[in-house]
Write a protein that binds this DNA or RNA. Structure first.
Length: 671
DNA sequence: ATGGGTAGCGCG
DNA sequence: AAAGCGCGCTACCCAT
C-alpha cells in the first residue's frame, strides 16, 4: 500500500485536510508530545521555602534541587536534596503524562493518504499554531468516525487537554488491543515490531521520545509513519474479526474499546489521597525501621565474612538476601529449611518465621522488613505520583495480563496492603485513599467470583448446589471433608476448608495447604483426597480442559478470550505441567476478568447520571467516589449493574453472582 | 552509570 | 512424584 503523504503548513492546507478526512468513516491518528512541566512538586502547599535568589552569600554555597526547587548545601555527587526528590526525578516522565504534555505534531492517515501537521517543533520554519490546529480538527475528532491508533488512548488523552478535557468520543480502533486480543504471546507490541510482523515492513522506531529534539524533516517523517502504520495495521488485521467464525472475538474487541473509554475517564479523574498524611507517615515509619535496624545490628555485630565491603561501614544490610542468609545460616548456625528456586538458602518470610523459635533476630528482621516495605513501596513510592490536586493517576493497562485482567502501574494501586499484620496496622495506606469533601467512597466487590465460575464450568453437583442455595461454601467443604454436620464445623476447620477451596480448585497440591494452614503434610494429603472426593467434577473438568488445550493449542473463557499455550505439548515435565495449570486457570480467571470488564462498562454508564466516578478497579472490586446525597440512590444501581451480567440474552453463569457493597470515608473503612 | 536477572512480597 | 495463576515494584548484585 502506497499512501500519498503531505506536510501541512498553512490554514488552507489544513482546511483541505479536514474536508478530505470528513469524507472518511474512520481514520488513524498519532500525536507527538513533549514535556511541558518539570517533575511533580513534592512539598506540601505552604511548605515551600522561599527560593532566595542570590540575596545572601549562602547562595554561593547551595544548589537548587531540580525536583522541588529547594536550596540545599551541595554534597559530593548529590543532585537532589533528598531521596524523595531523587525518586521523583526517576519516576516522573512528564513527556508521557497525557494530562500535562504538549502536542507538537499530529498526523492523520486514511484511505490512500497520510498527512502530518507540525505545530510546535522547535524548527524555525513555518508551522501552524497548535490551538488553531485543534480548533480546525474539532469536527473530525468529535464526530462518530472511528479513531484508530496504536495505543490510541494516550493520543486521545493528550488531545483532550485542548478541548477542556473532553475526550474525543467512540468508536475507537486501538491496534494494540486488537493485536493483543488475537495474540497475547508476542515478545513486543511496539509499532515497529508489529508492522514488521504483520506488514513485513521494517522501520526503525528507535526515535521514540527523541523525536522532538531531532531534525525537522526526520521528526515529521517519524510522526507521519506512526499514523500510517496504525492505519495499515488496522486494515490488515481488523477484517479478521468480521468473519462469521470470529463473532466472539469481535464482541470482545468492542468490549475492550468500551473499557478503554472508561479507563481514560478514570485516568483523568484519578484517586484522591490524603497528601498531608503521606508526608506525616513517611518519617514516622522511617524512624521505626531505622530504630529496629540499629537494634538488630547491635545483636548481629561485625561479621567475619570475607566480604568486608558491607561489614566495615554500617553493619549488615538486611535487604541483601546474601548477607542475611550468611548471617543466619553461617554465623548464627541456624538450620536452613527452605531453598529458593535458584537453589540458594531462602530468607523469605516463611523461612524466617520458622526460625523465630530458635533465635531472636529472625523475628526482628521480619518486623523490619514489614515496615521497610510499607515505607519504600507504598509511601515513598507513591508520593512522587501524587499530582498537585492530591490525586494519583495510575495507568490501568489492558494489554499486559494474558488472562484478560487489567493491570495497574505507575504506581500499582492493585496491591495495597489489605490484611492485618501482627505487629502493626498494615492497612494504613488504604486509609489514605479518601473520599474528597462532600463525597463518600463506595466499595463494591464480587463475592467468590472465581469459585462461582468454577462451579459453573465444572458443573460439579455440590459446588453448584452451594451457590444456588446461597450456602456458606467453606463451611460446606469442611463438613464434607470431615464428614460432620455443618453446625459442628470449627473455625479452624473452616479456615482449612477455605484454603483448600482456593488451592485445589486450580491444581494446587497438598503442600500448599500444609504451608498455609500449618497442618502436618499427612493430614493435608488426606484433606486433598477428601476434597476431590467431595467435588469430583473439578478434576474431571481439569482433565477435559487439558485435553482440549493439547488438541487445539489454546483454551478460552466463556466469552471466547483465548490463551495460547504451545508448551502444553512439551516433553519437559516442568514446562508442560506449568502450561497445564495455566490452561486450567485461564477459563476461571479469564472469565472473571471478562465479567469485570462488562461490569466496569455498565457501572460507568450508570454513574453518568450522578455526581459520581469510578476511582479504582482491583480485579473483582470497584471503588467509586460519589456525592454524599446520592449514595442511597447509586448503591442499588451499582449492585444491579454488577450482578446482572449476561452472555447473549442469558445470565452468564448457572449460579448467581453476588456483590458486597459498603460505604465509607476512606478505603480501609469499607469492608 | 545502566540493564538484566533473582529474590521477595504486596494484591486478587 | 508433585503441583496455583495473574500481575508490578523494590532492592541487590553482577555484567557491560
Amino acid at each position: 500500500m502506497n499512501l500519498a503523504t503531505k506536510t501541512i503548513r498553512s490554514v488552507d492546507d489544513l482546511k483541505d485536510v479536514v474536508a478530505t478526512y470528513e469524507r472518511f468513516g474512520e481514520f488513524a491518528l498519532d500525536v507527538e508530545t513533549r514535556a511541558s512541566r518539570k517533575v511533580r512538586m513534592l512539598t506540601l502547599p505552604g511548605d515551600i521555602p522561599p527560593a532566595t535568589k542570590g540575596t545572601s552569600r549562602a547562595a554561593t554555597r547551595t544548589v537548587v534541587c531540580p525536583s522541588c526547587g529547594r536550596e540545599f548545601p551541595p554534597r559530593h555527587g548529590r543532585k537532589w536534596c533528598d531521596d524523595l526528590c531523587r525518586l521523583a526525578a526517576e519516576k516522573d516522565k512528564p513527556a508521557l503524562d497525557a494530562r500535562t504534555n504538549a502536542v507538537w505534531s499530529i498526523s492523520l492517515a486514511g484511505p490512500g493518504r497520510a498527512d502530518v501537521i507540525p505545530c510546535g517543533h522547535p524548527d524555525p520554519r513555518q508551522q501552524l499554531e497548535v490551538d488553531d490546529v485543534f480548533a480546525a480538527l474539532e469536527p473530525l475528532l468529535f464526530s462518530d468516525r472511528r479513531k484508530i491508533g496504536q495505543n490510541v488512548s494516550f493520543d486521545l488523552l493528550s488531545i483532550a487537554k485542548y478541548y477542556d478535557g473532553a475526550i474525543p468520543p467512540p468508536p475507537y480502533g486501538d491496534t494494540l488491543t486488537l493485536i493483543f486480543l488475537l495474540n497475547e504471546n508476542l515478545p513486543s507490541y511496539k509499532l515497529g515490531a508489529l508492522s514488521k510482523r504483520y506488514l513485513g515492513l521494517a522501520y526503525a522506531d528507535k526515535l521514540g521520545e527523541h523525536a522532538y529534539t531531532t531534525f525537522f524533516e526526520k521528526a515529521v517523517r517519524y510522526s507521519l509513519v506512526d499514523a500510517k502504520m496504525a492505519w495499515m495495521l488496522w486494515w490488515k488485521i481488523h477484517p479478521k474479526l468480521t468473519k462469521a467464525t470470529a463473532r466472539k472475538l469481535a464482541d470482545l474487541f468492542d468490549l475492550e474499546m468500551q473499557v478503554m473509554h472508561v479507563l481514560m475517564n478514570m485516568r483523568q479523574a484519578g484517586a484522591f489521597v490524603d497528601l498531608e498524611e503521606f508526608h506525616h507517615i513517611r518519617p514516622e515509619l522511617e524512624r521505626q525501621f531505622t530504630e529496629k535496624l540499629a537494634e538488630i545490628r547491635e545483636m548481629v555485630g561485625a561479621c567475619k565474612c570475607e566480604r568486608p565491603r558491607w561489614v566495615e561501614r554500617d553493619g549488615i544490610n538486611l535487604n541483601s538476601t546474601a548477607q542475611l542468609a550468611h548471617y543466619l545460616y553461617d554465623e548464627a548456625k541456624l538450620r536452613c529449611e527452605f531453598l529458593t528456586e535458584g537453589g540458594a538458602r531462602s530468607t523469605s518470610a516463611q523461612a524466617l518465621k520458622g526460625l523465630t523459635k530458635r533465635h531472636p533476630v529472625p523475628g526482628m528482621v521480619l518486623e523490619f522488613k514489614d515496615l521497610q516495605k510499607l515505607q519504600s513501596t507504598y509511601i515513598s513510592g507513591y508520593i512522587p505520583h501524587i499530582d498537585e490536586d492530591s490525586r494519583i493517576r495510575a495507568s490501568l493497562n489492558q494489554t499486559r495480563a494474558k488472562t484478560g485482567r487489567l493491570s495497574c502501574s505507575d504506581p500499582n494501586l492493585q496491591n495495597i496492603p489489605a490484611r492485618h499484620k501482627e505487629t502493626f496496622e498494615a492497612t494504613m495506606v488504604r486509609r489514605l485513599f479518601r473520599a474528597p469533601p462532600g463525597k463518600k467512597l463506595i466499595v463494591a466487590d464480587y463475592s467468590q467470583i472465581e469459585l462461582r465460575i468454577l462451579a459453573h464450568q465444572t458443573k460439579d453437583r455440590l459446588l453448584v448446589y452451594a451457590y444456588t442455595h446461597n450456602l456458606d461454601l467453606h463451611a460446606q467443604t469442611a463438613s464434607l471433608i470431615w464428614r460432620i454436620p455443618q453446625d459442628q464445623v470449627t473455625g479452624e476447620q473452616r479456615a482449612i476448608a477455605k484454603n483448600s477451596n482456593f488451592n485445589f480448585a486450580f491444581e494446587g497440591g497438598p503442600g500448599r495447604v500444609e504451608a498455609m494452614s500449618g497442618i502436618p503434610i499427612r493430614e493435608a494429603e488426606e484433606v486433598y483426597s477428601a476434597w476431590h472426593r467431595a467435588y469430583p467434577g473439578v478434576k474431571k473438568w481439569g482433565k477435559t480442559v487439558k485435553r482440549f488445550c493439547w488438541e487445539h493449542g489454546y483454551v478460552e473463557t466463556l466469552y471466547g478470550r483465548k490463551r495460547r499455550l504451545p508448551e502444553i505439548t512439551s516433553d519437559d515435565w516442568k514446562e508442560r505441567s506449568y502450561a497445564e495449570r495455566q490452561a486450567v486457570n485461564h477459563p476461571i480467571q479469564g472469565t472473571a476478568a471478562d465479567i469485570a470488564k462488562i461490569a466496569i462498562v455498565e457501572v460507568h454508564k450508570t454513574l453518568q447520571d450522578f455526581d459520581a466516578a469510578l476511582v479504582l478497579q482491583v480485579h473483582d472490586e470497584f471503588v467509586i467516589e460519589v456525592a454524599e446525597r446520592q449514595v442511597d440512590e447509586v448503591l442499588p444501581l451499582v449492585r444491579t449493574a454488577m450482578e446482572d451480567i449476561r452472555l447473549g440474552t442469558r445470565p452468564v453463569l448457572d449460579v448467581p453472582l453476588e456483590v458486597n457493597i459498603s460505604v465509607g470515608n476512606n478505603w480501609a473503612e469499607c469492608k
